[in-house]
Amino acid sequence: MSQQAPQLNDFLRPGKPLPSDDLMISTALDILNHSPHGQQLTGFVSVNQISIRIMATPQPTTYLPESKLVYVGFNRNNPVSPARFVLMLAGILREAEQESAGIKHPTLNAPLQEHLKVSMAKHEDKVWYMCTVATELNALDTFKEYKFIDELRNMGHGEALDLYLKQEKKG
């Protein structure tokens, strides 16, 4: 076969050199600041003194263990793209904003229906917000190469994005 196989021994190399956590976070906040909805999130971070941390995880993930503490996690061997990092941060900050506004996950012993109702509404709002931020940033020439819309699709939100764009067009 003429095509080259991915080099399996690369699999075992230590994590790729990355900018410092502080630099990744401040750059992402700076990028978010260029979008009106992203700006709302950065304002929320500074007003409420939200702590943002990066964690090393096997798969890309975000986590909100406390209302003023958010994590963005990714694999150091296979880091997420800057665009994905920005969108992941936007999503988890929106979740923190929900908590701050009193829209919290039901307690563990709440009925399943309540969990479904609240969690779905929270998730829908979060994804909708990510679609808005991605669309706003994608429209800026400065960030053309980041391909925010494509990245959002790669994250598995293609269906939500199509719905969002359809509704935006109507509006």
Binding site: D10, F11, K16, N78
Partner: peptide
């Protein structure tokens, strides 16, 4: 299961 490469899962 617990280690990823630069091109993702193996």
């Amino acid at each position: 299961t617990n280690v990823q490469g630069s091109e993702g899962d193996i």
